[in-house]
């Protein structure tokens, strides 16, 4: 199951930091997403895009998680060479994340 079946998302930018909110459609979805979608999982999914730390904030009242991605915008919107300098497309990419639990690492 992909994240987009349980949640919607929006990305925003500030300097070289992107944030992606992930908002579940219902309570069960929120619990499932909260259990699986760790900051590490988000960082791995986005591959080389995020160079710094990923932090997660929980907003249970809004059924939402807010991910703050440091070093995700090519040094900042105004100097980035990226086609999508604002990282607006990152929400769409994150929603493709496969929620199947991963094999425990050996």
């Amino acid at each position: 199951m992909r994240l987009r079946e349980l949640a919607h998302a929006r990305s925003g930018d500030k300097g070289d930091v992107s944030n992606i909110s992930v908002i579940a459609y219902d309570t069960a979805g929120y619990e499932r997403v909260r259990a699986v979608l760790t900051p590490e999982r988000v960082k791995r999914h986005l591959g080389g895009i995020v160079r710094g730390e990923v932090r997660r904030y929980e907003l249970p009242g809004l059924l939402a998680l807010n991910f703050v991605l440091n070093g995700a915008l090519g040094g900042g919107v105004t100097r980035s060479l990226a086609l999508d300098a604002h990282g607006k497309c990152l929400s769409g990419l994150l929603l493709e994340l496969d929620l199947t639990p991963e094999e425990p690492s050996r």
Partner: peptide
């Protein structure tokens, strides 16, 4: 509620 929630969290770090 969905449009408002997305915008509340837009460009937000620590809520």
């Amino acid at each position: 509620v969905a449009t408002c929630t997305e915008q509340l969290l837009y460009e937000l770090h620590d809520p």
